[in-house]
Each structure stands twice: as structure tokens, then as C-alpha cells.
Design a protein around this nucleic acid. Sequence first.
DNA 1: TCGTTAGCGGAGCAACGTTCCGCTTGCTCA
DNA 2: TGAGCAAGCGGAACGTTGCTCCGCTAACGA
Lengths: 196, 196
Amino acid sequence: MNDGDEGARPAGRSKRADARRNEETLLDAAAAVFVASGVDAPVRDIAAEAGVGMGTIYRHFPTRADLIIAVYRRQVEACAEAGPALLATSATPYAALGQWITLFVDFLVTKHGLAAVLQSDNAGFETLHAYFLDRLVPVCTQLLDAAAGSGEIRSDLTAYELMRGVGNLCIGADHDPRYDARRLVDLLIAGLRRPH
Amino acid sequence: MNDGDEGARPAGRSKRADARRNEETLLDAAAAVFVASGVDAPVRDIAAEAGVGMGTIYRHFPTRADLIIAVYRRQVEACAEAGPALLATSATPYAALGQWITLFVDFLVTKHGLAAVLQSDNAGFETLHAYFLDRLVPVCTQLLDAAAGSGEIRSDLTAYELMRGVGNLCIGADHDPRYDARRLVDLLIAGLRRPH
DNA sequence: TCGTTAGCGGAGCAACGTTCCGCTTGCTCA
DNA sequence: TGAGCAAGCGGAACGTTGCTCCGCTAACGA
């Protein structure tokens, strides 16, 4: 996997300056291309946008998933951290859950094609899938448990299933004005309410 | 689009015998390969399974979507026709809607990768998308209207949105035992209920 | 300044969808 | 029946993709 913000290399040796520069450039280029052409834009396009060769891209980000993770890491972290915060400030755990899901949906819907690639069964995207799950499922579990504990919702749904369901509902939400993922997710969350 | 069961050609001329035979063979081969490798199996595999060349496949089914439609046409028709029937025999319109959606979900979930390809924004699958929509949205509208008319559900959701949402929820439902699409769809349908 | 080597670029390969065209062969009509 | 025609066939070939590989460049430590 990518080494995140800074050199977590074997010894104290640090990366060469041009390498660090390229990684930065690549992240910017990828972000731009993702916005313009979606997260499944051809790797060649990203390399071209960054003005580097393809070898460079694959050395820094061995997998397309690694690149996507690196581009969106900050936002995913922010979303994960918002969970406990919402739980602390919201009127009820169920309200917190709803707001948190909204945050997640807003994130997904604005990333052209990310939701689709996230659920894609193409080999090579497992690490992307895994990253989102590792980071967000625990947060979702916490919210879900709290809401179940307060008796507001049924408790027979796992956080994993909910996250996948919400992710799925976001697929194709861009480029189709007739489909409003937010509304359907709201419906799903409404369906969670304990009957009566 | 493909000409369905029988020759709907310009004049009375009918297809050559070998052509008809090949079309049949191709449908069988495609069905088999779809089951084994999913609906997005390589076209070459289908041609090989049928023992024909690639030109043959593309003459009969200009688009991958046409092939998929041809393979599943019967089942989609059956699903469409079940709508009014359920409405007539079920206790309430809402119950009919739930059962019909279940039918649809069962169909989608058992077709490896069909749900995914159905929502794919890849060019070339619009006709597949369109076929499903043309055939099923009217049925769904009828059920939805009936359920809204009887006051059981809220009436601010279009059949189109519901169908897309349900289709999305079915993505990846195979090959992941931790994800039960049926349960999430049930939740969604439960969320439709008019509050109180 | 100079040698080492991290890092770079892009040619090249494999897998895929799709097109194209020369050949085969079923069908028609005498 | 058998010739002629065109419907239909097969698969080579092309464009696009993801990803690898390796010879070369230039950054950095001494």
C-alpha cells in the first residue's frame, strides 16, 4: 500500500526529491482527471495529465485502487471522524446515524463513478473495497449499536450490509437527474426504524 | 433490436436455415456461459462455446445488450406479467408490490453480474437498460399507484427511481455471503410505508 | 567531482470489444 | 437437377485498455 503522508521507509533514508515531487503531481493530476472523466479514467490519461510516464504511476501506486485511496484518503478520514462527533452532538443516535449516512452519500455521489468501482467485482479493487470498509464499518457499527441501544431501530442489520447497501444506492447517481440516491437512502434509513 | 421469436423481416422472406440454427445455438451457449462466468463474459468465450466465429455473434446480436436481452427476454416478460396478477390476488396493493419486487430481486440476484451491467454507465448498454425499464417501469407504476391509492405508502417516489434503487441493491449480491440484497430491499420497501 | 542506484519513461504484451472482408453454402429458379 | 447468387460465416486485424519490463538519466552521498 501507499505510504501515506510521509516516508515510513525501512530505515531513515528518505525519498529522492523528484520522487516526492512526482507523487504530489500525480495526486493532483489524478484528482483532476477523476473529476473530469470519472475514477475509471484510463491510466494513460492520468500519466499524461501529470506529464510523467506510466512506469512512474505504477511505481508510486502499484494498483489503481492505491491511487484512488490516496486521492480520497483525507475525505474518508474526515467522514470516519465525523461519526463519533455526530453521536455526541445529535439529539438521538438515530439522528446521528442519518446525518452520518448523508455525509457518506454526499461524498460518494460527488465522485463520478466511485460508488460503481467500489462495488465492482473486478479483481484489483479489493484493496479499495477493503480500505473503505476497514475505515468506515467500525464507525457505522458504533452508530448502529447506539441507535439500536436506544430502541429506535431494529438491530438485525450489520454495519457491513448497510454500508454496502448505501454504496450500491449511490451508483449512477450522477449523470441521471431522474435518479436521486439521497432520497432512496433516506427511504432505506426510514425502513430501519423499529416498527410501531 | 433483435427480432424476437420469429422472422419479422421486411417481406415474407425467411432466414436461412443455418442462420436460424446458429441463433438458437448462440442463445443456448450464451445462457450457459452467463451462468458459468457472468453476463460480462468475453464475447470470444461465447462464440467458442457455440462453436461459431465472432462475426456470427455480432450479426445476430449487434450489441452485447441485444444478446443479454434475448437470453432473458422470457423471464422478464414473465415478471412483467406477474404484476397485474399479483395485484389481483394479493390482500392489499402494498403486499402485491412487495411480492412483485421479491420476484424481480430473485431474478436479478440469480443472474451473475446482470444487476451490475444493468446500471453500468458504459456506452452500449443503454438498450439493455432501456429494455428493462420499458418493460418493467409501467408495471411498477401500476403497483405503486395502487399502493399509494390505498394509502399504504407515500406517493412521492417514481417507479423509475424505485426500480433503479432495487436494481442497485442487487449488485454484487452473489459472491458475497455477508451481503443479503433481499433484506436490504425489504428495508427499502418498508421505508415506503406511510409514516404512522 | 564522481560513482551508485533510485527513479524515470515509454515500448511492448495480453485481453478485450468490435469491424471487415473473402469464402462457403443454402436457397431459388429454370 | 444443377447453376448462380447473395445470405451468412469465420477469424484476422484494429483500437483501447491495464500492466510489466528494462535501458537510461540524474539525484544524492562521499
